[in-house]
Simulated assay, not measured.
Amino acid sequence: MIRVLVADDEAMIRAGIRAVLASDPGIAVVAEAEDGRAAVELTHAHRPDVVLMDIRMPGLDGLAAAAELRDVAPVVMLTTFDEDEYVAKALADGASGFLLKAADPRELIIAVRAVADGAAYLSPRVAHRVIAGLRTGELTRPAAAKRKVEALTPRERDVLALVGRGLSNQAIARELHLAEGTVKAHLSSILRGLDVQNRVQAAITAYEAGMTG
């Protein structure tokens, strides 16, 4: 069972998210929060597998809350806004995904399952903006990315390339004929070697270094 915490200051939005997730018998909402501070406290208390976090909330906003939770639980930012500044800050603060509230409800379940499985998830609309930014050089330093990647071991580069393609730990293990625990160990080493916070940032580095094309 995938345990989810929903953080949004609008009760109607939380009810809608809860209803969508309830359609999947493998997902359960274990707690709800009306602001970022409550989300942080409830995440520590309930230890959910995934946190769905609105960005604009009273008091501590979702971006700040996500930064506090980066080592506690994976956070998917759920928002009506897709401005580049929000996307860039969410990823820099360690979010594992970014999903628009206007997305198809099925996308919410896909995102929760992907992040719970150790993968990252970006709404296709957001992913398009990120990739466009990478191509124009707005969000990337290709030369620096290549230097970082070159410092990894050959096996770590294999794993990073598959992370860049959006594969989960389980899928990477199948692809490379490794135990899933070995993949997780490689990923931890990769994050340290690249000096990034999570697999979203690692995937961006893989793209910058030309490993995904």
Rank of each mutant, 00 (worst) to 15 (best):
L108Y: 08
I109E: 15
G97R: 13
E138G: 01
L122D: 07
D82W: 02
L176R: 01
R70N: 09
F98M: 06
G166V: 11
R129P: 06
V87G: 01
G164Q: 02
Q170G: 07
Y86L: 05
A66T: 15
E175M: 02
T136R: 11
T79N: 09
D84N: 04
R135V: 15
A64P: 03
G164E: 06
A66W: 08
N169K: 02
E175V: 01
A92K: 11
A171H: 04
D71W: 13
G62F: 09
L108M: 14
G166S: 09
E68I: 05
A171N: 06
S96V: 02
S96R: 03
L108P: 07
A102S: 15
A114V: 10
G94F: 10
K89G: 01
A88M: 12
A116M: 13
D158Y: 00
M77T: 05
V112N: 11
A173Y: 12
F81T: 01
R174T: 01
E175K: 00
A144V: 15
K146L: 10
D117R: 13
E68A: 15
I172H: 00
A119E: 02
V126W: 08
F98K: 05
V130A: 06
L162T: 06
G137V: 07
N169P: 09
L134F: 10
P74T: 07
L160V: 00
D61L: 01
R174G: 04
A151C: 05
R70S: 08
L99F: 07
A173K: 02
R106E: 09
E156P: 02
R141E: 14
L178Y: 04
V115N: 07
A65Q: 11
A111M: 12
A151N: 00
L100S: 05
A95C: 13
A132W: 02
L139P: 05
V112I: 14
D93T: 09
V76Q: 09
A114Q: 13
L152T: 01
Q170R: 14
G62A: 10
I109P: 09
V149H: 00
V115F: 07
L78V: 13
A90Q: 04
P105S: 08
E85G: 02
A151R: 02
A90Y: 09
A111T: 07
V72T: 15
I110W: 14
F98I: 08
D93N: 14
A92L: 12
R70C: 06
T153N: 03
